[in-house]
Amino acid sequence: MTISWLQAIILGIFACLSSMPGMGGTTIGNYTLGRPLVAGLVCGIVLGDVQSGILVGAAMQVVYIALVTPGGTVSADVRAVSYIGIPLAMLAINSYGLDPASAKGIGMATSFGAMVGTLGTVLFYGTATINLVWQHVGWKAVEKGDFKKLYAVDMVLPWISHIICSFIPAVVMCKLGVPVVETIKTTLPMDGIAMKTLFTVGSMLPCVGIAILLKQVVDKAADFVPFFFGFTLAAGMGLNLVSVTVVAGMFAIIYYNLKMVGIKAKEAALASGGSLDDDDEEDI
C-alpha cells in the first residue's frame, strides 16, 4: 500500500476541516469528521480499503471516545490522530501483514494514533497562535467600524493557519510515512522487546480514554456502579452494545421517574401550604 500525492492532498484538506478549531466548524468539522471512526471511513475511501479504514478508526476511537477540551486545553489533536495517525496505521498494518480486526492490528493502530495525537498537540497550539494575527486584523476592523471584514477574519483567514499547521504536516507525514514505516519494520523485529511493549501499550491506551470520561461523571465510589453495570452486561453476560443501550435506557427511565416522584411530592407539599422551612425551597 502506498499513498499518492493526490491521496495525501485530500487527507490534508480533511485535516484542515476536522481539527479543533477546524474549518468545517465545530459540529460538522471537529465532532463529525474529526472523530476517528468517521475519519476511518474517509481514509478508507481515499486509500481504497474501506474495511481496514473503519477497523483502524474504530480501534482509535475507543482511546478518544471522550475528547473533552475544557477551556481549550487539548491532550491530543484530532486532525493528527485522524488524518495522519489512521493512514499511517493502515500502512503499517498492511506492511506488517497484520489482520486489522485482530488484537494485534488494534494494538498497532492505537499506539500509532496515541503517538501521533500527542505530538499533534503542537499543531493545535500552532493554529491558535497564528489565529492571533487574524484576530489582530479583526480588532482593527472593529475599531474602524468595518464590520463586514469580521466574516473574513472568522471564516476565511484561518484557512492560512490551517494550510501551515494542518495541510502541510498531514501531506508531508502521509508521504514520508511509507519509507518511515518500512524503516521501523526492518529495525524493530516483531518479536523484540520494543514491538512487544508497543503492542501491549496499544491494548492499554483505551483505558486512558475511558478514564477521562469517568473523571467527568464519577465523584464518589457509588458513581462507579453504573459503569460496572454496563461493563458486566458486556463482559460477563455477553450483550452487544446496542442491547446494552436498550437495557441502560430502561434504567434511565426508572431513575427519571423516581426523581420526578420526589419533585412532584415536594411541589404538592408546597402547594397545600405545607410549612417546609427548608431554605432551599425559596428559589423554586
Binding site: A59, D223, F227, F231, T232, L233, A248, G249, K259, I284
Partner: peptide
C-alpha cells in the same frame, strides 16, 4: 431546573453504562 436536572442525570447514567460496555467490548488488557 429540577426536571432538567433529573433528565440530565438519567442521561448521564445511561451514558456511563454504555461506556462501561464499550470498555468491556473494545478494551482488552490480558
Amino acid at each position: 431546573g429540577e426536571q432538567a436536572t433529573a433528565i440530565r442525570e438519567s442521561i448521564v447514567m445511561l451514558g456511563t453504562m454504555v461506556v462501561g460496555s464499550v470498555a468491556a467490548t473494545w478494551v482488552s488488557v490480558k
